[in-house]
Design a protein around this nucleic acid. Structure first.
Lengths: 132, 132
DNA sequence: GCTTGACCTTCCAGTCACAGGAACCACTAA
DNA sequence: TTAGTGGTTCCTGTGACTGGAAGGTCAAGC
C-alpha cells in the first residue's frame, strides 16, 4: 500500500505520516522503487495514532501508548497513568479557558460596540480589573 | 528604567519584552550605554499587553488592540469585534476539550489500572469507539 | 585601581506537530 | 511520447516565546 492509500485508510495527511516515520513512530518498509510500503499492521498503528492524537495525547504520549499497545505483557496501570495525567491537563486547560471566557464575555457584553471610543474592554486591559 | 525593572513592573519576563520589541509591539528608547530605556508609557503598554495576553489574545490581536487603545478616535465596535471573535474561538476550544475530557474520563474510569494487560483505553484507540 | 557580581546586550538554537513548497523521480493511460 | 498523478527528499515557516553562549556595563567593596 502506498502512502496515499495509507493516508486515506488511516485518516491522516500523507505529510503527517512521513513526519511520524521521521520521528520513529512508525517504520514502514520500502518498495524497490523507493516508495513506502504500508502493511495492514502499519495502517492499524496509524489509525491508533490518529485516535490517540484526536484525544489530545502528545506525540510522546502516543509513542508510549503505542509501545504499551504492542506489549502484550503490559500492565493496564501504565496506560491508565498516562491517560489520567492527560485528563488532568485537559481539566486544567478547561478551567483556564473558562476563566478567560467568563471575563471576556462580561467585557464584550459591557461594550456598546458603536462608533464612540469609550470601551470597557480596553479600559479593563488598561489597568482596570479583568473580572468585570 | 532598565529592562529588569520594566519586567518587574509589567509582570513579564525580560526575554518576552525583548521579543515584543523585536516584533515591533513596543519601541522603547535607548540609553547611551545601549540599554533599553522604558518610560512610564512603555510600562503601561507592556502591562496592557500582559493583560491582553492573559485573556488569550494572539500577538496580532494584541497589536491591533494596542493600536486601537492608542487611537482616541477609535470606534468601540472595532474592539468589540476582535474580542467577540476571540470569545467565539475560546468557546469552540472549550467544547472541543470537553468532548476529549468526557471520552477520556469514561475510558479512564473503565480501566482497572492493575497489573493485567486488558485495557479499555487501548481497546478504544485500537479500533473501538472513542465515545465509550 | 581592581575584582566581583548583577545586569545588560546580541545572536543562535530549540520547542510542538506539523504544513507548504521546490525540485525531482516513478508509474499509468492515451 | 506525453501528460498527469503520485511518490521522494529537503528546506522553511508557524506562535510565542525560552534557554544559553559570549561578551559589554555598572555599582560596591577591598
Amino acid at each position: 500500500m502506498n502512502i496515499g492509500q495509507a493516508a486515506e485508510a488511516a485518516g491522516l495527511p500523507a505529510k503527517t505520516i512521513r513526519y511520524y516515520e521521521e520521528i520513529g513512530l512508525i517504520k514502514p518498509g520500502r518498495n524497490a522503487n523507493g516508495y513506502r510500503a504500508f502493511t495492514a499492521k502499519d495502517i492499524h498503528n496509524l489509525a491508533f495514532l490518529a485516535r490517540a492524537r484526536a484525544l489530545g495525547f502528545s506525540i510522546e504520549d502516543c509513542r508510549a501508548l503505542l509501545a504499551l499497545y504492542e506489549d502484550t505483557s503490559r500492565a493496564s496501570a501504565d496506560v491508565k497513568r498516562i491517560a489520567q495525567r492527560h485528563l488532568d491537563e485537559i481539566e486544567a486547560k478547561i478551567l483556564q479557558l473558562r476563566e478567560m471566557r467568563d471575563t471576556l464575555a462580561n467585557l464584550v457584553d459591557a461594550c456598546r460596540g458603536n462608533h464612540r471610543p469609550d470601551c470597557p474592554i480596553l479600559a479593563s486591559m488598561s489597568g482596570g480589573r479583568t473580572d468585570t
